[in-house]
Design a protein around this nucleic acid. Sequence first.
DNA 1: AATGAATGAGCTTTCATTCAT
DNA 2: CATGAATGAAAGCTCATTCAT
Lengths: 201, 201, 201, 201
Amino acid sequence: MKTMKDKKEQKRALILNAAIKLYSVNGFEETKIADVAKEAGVSFGTVFSYFESKNALYEAAILEPLEEIRSYFENVEDHFQGDPLDVMKAMIDCHVEIFSTRKELLLLIQQVLARPSRFPNLFEELDGFVNSFVDSINSIIEEGQKLGYFYKGSPSLIAESYLSFINGIRLTFIDDETNPVWERFKIQALRLFGPFYKSEE
Amino acid sequence: MKTMKDKKEQKRALILNAAIKLYSVNGFEETKIADVAKEAGVSFGTVFSYFESKNALYEAAILEPLEEIRSYFENVEDHFQGDPLDVMKAMIDCHVEIFSTRKELLLLIQQVLARPSRFPNLFEELDGFVNSFVDSINSIIEEGQKLGYFYKGSPSLIAESYLSFINGIRLTFIDDETNPVWERFKIQALRLFGPFYKSEE
Amino acid sequence: MKTMKDKKEQKRALILNAAIKLYSVNGFEETKIADVAKEAGVSFGTVFSYFESKNALYEAAILEPLEEIRSYFENVEDHFQGDPLDVMKAMIDCHVEIFSTRKELLLLIQQVLARPSRFPNLFEELDGFVNSFVDSINSIIEEGQKLGYFYKGSPSLIAESYLSFINGIRLTFIDDETNPVWERFKIQALRLFGPFYKSEE
Amino acid sequence: MKTMKDKKEQKRALILNAAIKLYSVNGFEETKIADVAKEAGVSFGTVFSYFESKNALYEAAILEPLEEIRSYFENVEDHFQGDPLDVMKAMIDCHVEIFSTRKELLLLIQQVLARPSRFPNLFEELDGFVNSFVDSINSIIEEGQKLGYFYKGSPSLIAESYLSFINGIRLTFIDDETNPVWERFKIQALRLFGPFYKSEE
DNA sequence: AATGAATGAGCTTTCATTCAT
DNA sequence: CATGAATGAAAGCTCATTCAT
């Protein structure tokens, strides 16, 4: 009994991963369910017995991985402790790690963001994600501002700038997954918060 | 004679603008040639007499507007004179103006960037665009670094950061076209170059 | 032992009744085996262990109930005794009772009759049914004719007219199951046999 | 110009006739659009440029021929003049002619009547047809009753009986198109109105 | 015996593209 | 040139049926 459920779960994951892979590369319309099935090693009929429709599969391919990383954006305080500056550094480390690693998810997210009217539900969800993040680090930024670490000004602006920045990198340097590149962007990310690394001569 | 050519040119523009509008909102696959024709007020047969295929129309819809803005990214020195800091400020003003205004073009660009393997030619072109920009402002950044305005470090990194940043804003705040929002991001953009606006208390 | 067989029989009946219900309303193609199974409270796999195929189930859904009423059409003399006129009256009572009550079966029959080439076996069977009925009441009609009750002329014609008539009612007034409606048609049915109820002023 | 419209009309008719033929024999679900196209000698794509969908084609295949015969059922007085008895005789002649000739239309109608819940619009339409007919001959029957030709009683009952009767014949003797058979049923049809042909010995 | 996961034939429908008018 | 009728490849999806458990 247990085994059967596990097997179903496993096969579902197989299909979902195939979907993530193909959707991220080819986009929604040009990914054929038959291709996903082949990639997953099942018949296309099987895909439909695990996911209601092509649309539902797409949503799952984005939303489920999103859950895995959600916490690192929405509960920043829980994951990173200490001095606001250290928290931000740790957070940036974590986020860059995620963005450089999870290329597929980010591509999918960008597909949705680039066509909000086509995927209204997903867009809504992602929009909420952004807002939650901004809220989540608001107080940390404020504290950092009081301590003189960060630029004065709207914490939201800083948070949004930061998110746009790492998002933009992923989009602009889509092929690069090498550590060094991303490593260097971490410094730039922090500079949106405050005037750091000034004297690196 | 002249008039005939003009008329043809005009009709071509009509179709191209319709294409830009619809492709940007609906993406490549979900934009139907019939819809473009209707939007342009011509029959769909006519579309094919001005553009070889749906693909060719998509390429034109991206590449031709791209030409219009190319100069502001690839010949930075020609457009903005003076002190490196002033040049950057002027450039950012100009770029933000472009990014906030030409939502449609940017959406199209992001569609391509999000699916490099689907549009290799276009991706190549856009990639070249990025590189040209980075090259173009290299010496300005270097000069600014010597003068102590800008952070030390790889000028490419700074240029790429900047591009990613404005790109990311466009993507993340896709709906916003209001000036104030974009205005505030200009400050953040400049902070990728150097520690400016520190004392805005 | 006995119980086991009974249980099997019972489950078979459960499925058959579900099939009759759904086939009659939705027709052959639009009735899904899965729906029949759900209606019967079994898994769809079970349906196939009682009936060879969807076709076989359809045939059973028509032929088995047909058996139950067959006798009232093919052995008219055995069921109704007396004067030919009384026999016909009793027969009409009985038939109208059947037609008004067994809407489902009649709908199924009409589905078959409306598409003879799709269900040749079933059609054959129903055609035989009609012929048997016509033969069965032939002598009764002849006798009634001799007694001056019924119209002269081919008894077959009268029998066929009668059958067409009640069949047609069922088809034309498909929703009506109220007694009064059917009651009034009994008078009309008898008028196909002879000039009755003339003076009902 | 004129010719083009005519040609389109002609091709539409070609497709519609093919549809009538196949739908009537095979029913809605088992008639494939590809088959209709082949029968009409066009590609299946063409079918969709004349009819919105398979459903729309089915509706057209029933409703358009229905229009052709409507008048003979709904404007009985306009078509047949004289003595009520003569009117009925002429009407029956006409109707039997229609029913014996237009087997295809009648089969289609019966498909709809046998599955009202599947084709609610069409069913509605046909139901209206029946009611209009009943209304239409009401006064003629009443007049005939006054003159002593017809049975006393509800004119509606008589009208409905008549309609059920010819409908039922078409259904029960689906294959027969020979005149003699239908000719004999005309006598029976009239007997639903009054005690005619008593002395045909 | 009962289940339901897996399969894939076969359907409708869309839409880019061709080409005769 | 402009048009739009005709085409048919190609896709998503349904569901009867099989068969391992």
